[in-house]
Amino acid sequence: MTTAISVSGLVKTFGPTRALDGLDLTVRSGEVHGFLGPNGSGKSTTIRVLLGLLRADAGEVRLLGGDPWTDATELHRRLAYVPGAVSLWPNLSGGEVIDLLGRLRGGLNPKRRTELLERFDLDPTKKGRAYSKGNRQKVALVAALASDVELLILDEPTSGLDPLMEAVFKDCVREEHERGRTVLLSSHILAEVESLCERVSIIRLGRTVETGTLTELRHLTRTSISAELAGVPDRLGEHPGVHDLHVEGHRVRFDVETAELDPVLRELTRVGVRGLVSQPPTLEELFLRHYEEASR
């Protein structure tokens, strides 16, 4: 399997701000890759470097086998980009913008354009400033999805979309995936990432802190357990996989890393279990843990 995007040790500074501080990112061809991180962690900056809009200060960046800075125009014909905040020309209609961007990229599929306009329920005759935020976003989405490209780079593409349109967007991304396209999806909506992406990268303060398939990441999650025991669980605290342990007599409450579940449960049954409630692991909790550390 080839890689569509490979970034290693990427550094980008804006004056005193170190927006990217040795970031790594690998997106394989044909996958939908989730790109997550708290506000200001450097997602949009990474994407701008990938698009050749910003010049990297250090690090290795390859995009579709080329250099995003020197080969920008050739590479751009093979990808489509949707920014998080779409700003349209006040006196051009949405339909004109879709056609223009498509043609500048080297053509777009008219059948798909019609179909997408219908599915996103978008009126192409409105002028730029008459569109609502969500509808501006749809203009950029239709322009990107209607062109035949290998790679879609989407920076928070669904911000402002209503739940119905969000569902249409998910269907579209799945279809793109089935057609063999690669998608880099930056998003704050965990449900969207969980339902679309095979692999994700989580970044914080300009560095990659976690990357892998969703299954691998689930492995990093923790199960919450509260139990009523027959005796005093004196050895539970020594266990490396146990966090936030509270013991009140025979009652215990704690979080346990999913990978360590088996030995910890053995320990409980050794003491003797009278009652047990467990909370299944969620990715949300994993993300929040990373996000919270960032805000500290």
């Binding site: 920008a72 751009h76 500048l104 080297g106």
Partner: peptide, 15 residues
Amino acid sequence: TAGRLEPVLATGVGR
């Protein structure tokens, strides 16, 4: 500054 250059440069148009 209005953010309208970025999408254009992200197509096949050179700077």
